[in-house]
Simulated assay, not measured.
Amino acid sequence: MKRFFGFGRKRKGPPPSGGASPPCNPGAYELREKELGKLHRAAASGDLAQARQALKKYSIDGRDKAKRTPLHLACANGHLEVVMYLVENKCKLNLCDSDDRSPLMKAVQCQQEECVAILLARGADPNLADVNGSTALHLAAIAPNTSLAGQLLEHNARIDARNKMGYTPLALAVSEHHEEMVEFLLKKGADVHARDQSERTPLCLLLLLGT
């Protein structure tokens, strides 16, 4: 696999992710507490008691200026008890923030595996696309996190979904030289011949980035 895909070569230039790559602190929201309502603050900090109190006054699906719901903030920060509380009180699972990312996508991006499991078990859609056209599986591929990718595939995530640049999760994994993720996706049936908007396959991308 290493010789075939050329892992270990020095990559030149940025990866062709169409803006899908996570920041240095993957998925983290920049929060200004004074701009958040009480329920959003409780969700972001993991304060379950405060969340229960705030829910008496504030909408469970209320949005802040960045269109984030309390569930977004709880998932991004891995506050499992708050996530469970919000889900059990029938919050909407598939609302998207200003980047068109759902709570599930934020949980994947921040690698909060237990939150991901809860959301998927309750029916969160794994195939929503963000402003870049990337799905939760794209985000798992560039993390990289094969456990999260496996959870998503078990809940019918599209393995060959394309973002706005035409890249599949496999193409992104190749572009980032994530060998384990590439092997995982191939074993799960990812199409190594899938072409992006420039008619390049994951193998073509590898040759381009590795030379």
Rank of each mutant, 00 (worst) to 15 (best):
V82F: 05
D191P: 01
C96R: 12
S147N: 11
L153C: 04
D61R: 09
H79L: 07
F184A: 06
H138L: 09
R101T: 05
G78L: 08
L186P: 03
A161H: 04
F184G: 01
H177P: 00
L148H: 01
G123R: 04
H138Y: 10
H178D: 05
Y85I: 02
C96Q: 15
K106L: 12
A124N: 03
H193T: 14
N94G: 06
H178R: 15
K106I: 04
L137T: 03
K90R: 13
H155Y: 10
D125E: 14
V108C: 11
A74H: 02
A129E: 13
A141P: 03
L95F: 08
I60Y: 01
I159R: 03
R162D: 00
K65E: 15
D160H: 06
R63A: 11
L104I: 06
L152E: 03
C110H: 02
E180N: 14
R162F: 09
C75V: 08
G62M: 13
T69I: 11
A161K: 06
L73D: 01
I159H: 04
T69A: 08
N127W: 10
E81R: 11
A149K: 05
L95H: 03
L73R: 04
A157S: 14
A149E: 02
A129Q: 15
Q151H: 13
D61V: 11
D97I: 08
L120I: 03
A107I: 07
V182I: 14
L172M: 14
H193P: 00
H138K: 09
I142G: 00
S175V: 09
M165T: 13
L104P: 00
P144W: 12
D61W: 11
M181Q: 08
A74S: 12
C75H: 03
R63S: 09
E176V: 08
G189P: 05
K67I: 05
D125F: 08
E183Q: 14
C96H: 07
A140R: 07
C96V: 15
L137K: 04
N132C: 15
N145Q: 09
L153I: 14
R158S: 12
V87D: 00
P70R: 07
L120H: 00
A149G: 09
Q109G: 04
H72K: 10
A190F: 10
K187M: 12
H72A: 05
A107M: 08
G78T: 09
L71S: 02
A161R: 05
V82L: 06
K188H: 12
L185F: 10
A149R: 03
S102M: 09
A129G: 09
D191I: 07
D100I: 06
N89D: 00
A140F: 07
N156Q: 14
Q109R: 13
V108D: 00
K90P: 00
G189S: 10
Q111W: 08
H79G: 02
G78Q: 07
V82R: 00
L172G: 02
F184P: 01
Y85C: 02
